[in-house]
């Protein structure tokens, strides 16, 4: 399922609405890195509230998205991670050290202002 990317001022919002295939994640990465330049955005919020499983590939891709967007001049905030997902990730040693996080979309937007 494709991830819709919305523009809100100079911030982009990507809301993941269901489990994603690896291909979906890669196209999310491509779309975001294009649109950041296209819309001259300085921040991106990725909302993963609906995700109840995150594997190592999706973690790595999210981390890569954050690094790529940084190089393209935008900050990334990941919002709405579920407790079980967070717990499973740290147990696997996947802690997304250089990615900003926030509780929900609202807080994510505040963080980027």
């Amino acid at each position: 399922m494709k991830v819709p990317i919305l523009k809100q001022g100079n911030i982009l919002i990507a809301t993941i609405q269901s489990a994603l295939t690896d291909q979906d994640l890669i196209s999310l990465k491509d779309n975001l890195s294009h649109q950041v330049i296209q819309h001259r955005s300085h921040g991106v919020v990725i909302d993963i509230t609906e995700l109840d499983v995150m594997d190592s590939f999706s973690t790595r891709t999210l981390r890569n998205i954050a690094s790529i967007l940084k190089l393209r001049g935008a900050d990334t905030v990941i919002v709405g991670m579920q407790p079980d997902v967070a717990f499973a990730m740290v147990q696997l040693g996947l802690t997304l050290p250089n990615v900003k996080t926030a509780r929900d979309l609202e807080e994510g937007l505040t963080l980027l202002k």
């Binding site: 709405g80 991670m81 717990f87 990730m89 740290v90 996080t101 509780r103 994510g108």
Partner: peptide
């Protein structure tokens, strides 16, 4: 340490 990391992932 894990609890700290997990909480941070959730934005706390």
């Amino acid at each position: 340490v894990q609890t700290v990391d997990a909480s941070r992932l959730m934005g706390a």
